[in-house]
């Protein structure tokens, strides 16, 4: 099988034409005891289809919280989160779970593979939520493993794989449902520099060659440089411009439309 894509959707070139993520005046406040702790403060962000966007910022700036909201893992205290045209802030928790299964591919910092399962069974886990035939599942697992370059490692368990290979399996798992958005939470945070480079190469290729829209949270400026755009969060607000020079939102000013 020489396929390296799940559908006929053409590989993207990173061109920004359609909003994939539209975050409008979002607030997220947590309760610490009786004290409300605002983490995201009236934040507005737009991300185009086909973009590879990096979110940077110091610990506690709210970048992971923002990623969780966009990925449908959390719901905002106020404001709107529209992803792929769906107003996900309105979805019940149950519907949100189904929405995530269909639309979001997760890449975690620690790969979060299920230790007792082989690589290919790990990759197949999201397919258990679909009605695909066993044959189609098999096909998709093969394609996903091929894309991440691990076709020959499918039978291995996570502990038999290197850190970089584990993260590749995690990426294959994120791809297998052909999601419209890949969210990556510190995908290289647990890897050495060389392995980080390989994972970032893979993400760039997924964006460039397979048209995947990618949202990546990272502490690492080297990683952020590989994205097509970088946004900085500080104290719950977007702080400045990305490395491509595009001004996003002025610091501490009321949120407006992103570029």
């Amino acid at each position: 099988m020489s396929e390296t894509s799940f559908s006929d959707a053409a590989a993207g070139n990173g061109a920004a034409t359609e909003a994939m993520v539209d975050v409008r005046s979002v607030r997220r406040t947590f309760q610490r005891g009786r004290t409300p702790v605002p983490v995201l403060k009236d934040l507005t962000l737009r991300m185009e289809k086909g973009e590879f966007l990096a979110l940077m910022g110091p610990s506690g700036s709210g970048k992971s919280t923002l990623l969780n909201l966009i990925a449908g893992l959390d719901r905002p205290t106020g404001g709107e989160v529209i992803v792929g045209g769906s107003e996900i802030h309105r979805l019940s928790e149950r519907k949100l779970a189904g929405w995530r299964a269909r639309n979001i591919g997760f890449v975690f910092q620690f790969s979060n593979l299920l230790g007792a399962l082989s690589a290919e069974r790990n990759v197949a886990v999201p397919l258990l939520l679909t009605s695909f035939s066993a044959r189609e599942r098999r096909r998709r697992v093969d394609i996903a493993l091929e894309i991440v370059g691990l076709s020959d490692r499918g039978k291995h368990r996570p502990r038999e794989l290197s850190g970089g290979e584990q993260q590749r399996v995690g990426i294959a798992r994120a791809l297998v449902n052909d999601p419209m958005l890949l969210v990556c939470d510190e995908p290289t945070g647990d890897l050495d520099r060389a392995t980080s480079g390989e994972i970032l190469d893979l993400l760039v290729a997924l964006n460039r060659d397979h048209g995947k829209t990618i949202l990546m949270v990272t502490h690492d400026p080297v990683a952020a440089e590989r994205a097509s755009r970088t946004l900085h969060l500080e104290d719950g607000r977007l702080a400045d411009c990305g490395h491509d020079g595009t001004v996003v939102v002025p610091v501490h000013e009321p949120a407006g439309a992103a570029v």
Partner: peptide, 13 residues
């Protein structure tokens, strides 16, 4: 707990 959370993040109820 992390594996269960992963499954739920992936869309399991």
């Amino acid at each position: 707990s992390r594996e269960i959370a992963t499954l739920r993040a992936l869309g399991f109820s």
